[in-house]
């Protein structure tokens, strides 16, 4: 089970609401490389992961991703507080507002609702870990793009923290891939189906 810790992993304190920024940052909650997809991907990949160290990485990175959903949620919530109808119209937040008011709804920057297609679970050690390595880099690029478009330091600060976490998670999934390959049959040069067809004796 999980229990809630009553703190954000990194503080979010946005003095100046700005719904135009919420409109693009929402992608890191419900977009193709967002935190909702990340948490769901890693936590669901655990069951077919035969190596207990790597299942640990999936559990603990997946858990951290839940806290990143919360940080993005806090950013969206604080950017959209105390809006006037005029601000909503002028900022381009109106399309989102009509359907969700100032609620936090997982969708992409283009307004496409979250889709489970973003969650890669192949049930294969090599396929899943490579998916995860790519996912971390794609999320890092999305944060880079947001940071190219945003200049409020109150918003950039937590986004920079989240960007850095993508880099660390990429390193940790690299550890996972090394462990998986170290445990595979030495004749299995091509890393085929280690999670299903083969027994996986530990070295």
């Amino acid at each position: 089970m999980w229990i809630y810790e009553r703190k954000l992993q990194y503080p979010v304190k946005i003095r100046k609401p700005n719904p135009a920024l919420a409109k693009i940052i929402v992608s890191q909650l419900g977009g193709p490389d967002g935190e909702l997809g990340a948490a769901t991907r890693y936590l669901n990949q655990r069951y077919s992961m035969p190596y207990k160290e790597v299942a640990g990485i999936l559990t603990d990175v997946g858990t951290e991703e839940i806290s990143h959903q919360e940080m993005i949620g806090a950013i969206l919530h604080q950017l959209t507080r105390e809006m006037t109808p005029e601000e909503i119209r002028k900022s381009g937040f109106d399309a989102y507002f009509v359907d969700h008011t100032a609620g936090v709804y997982p969708a992409s920057a283009a307004g496409v609702p979250f889709d489970a297609k973003y969650v890669g679970v192949k049930g294969d050690v090599i396929a899943d870990l490579n998916e995860d390595l790519a996912a971390e880099q794609k999320a890092r690029v999305t944060y880079d793009n947001l940071l190219r478009l945003i200049d409020d330091p109150d918003v950039c600060d937590p986004l920079k923290f989240l960007r850095e976490r993508e880099l660390v998670h990429y390193q940790r999934f690299g550890d996972g891939l090394r462990i998986a390959q170290d445990n595979m049959d030495y004749r299995n040069f091509y890393g085929y189906n280690p999670a299903f067809d083969k027994k996986h004796p530990r070295r």
């Binding site: 992993q9 160290e53 603990d60 660390v168 550890d175 090394r178």
Partner: peptide
């Protein structure tokens, strides 16, 4: 005190992720 807790828990969690792969 809250800031210290945040710093300590970050240090701990970062080490958790590392130890999973380097037990």
């Amino acid at each position: 005190l809250f800031k210290m807790i945040r710093a300590y828990s970050f240090a701990v969690y970062e080490t958790v992720l590392y130890l999973d792969g380097h037990p």
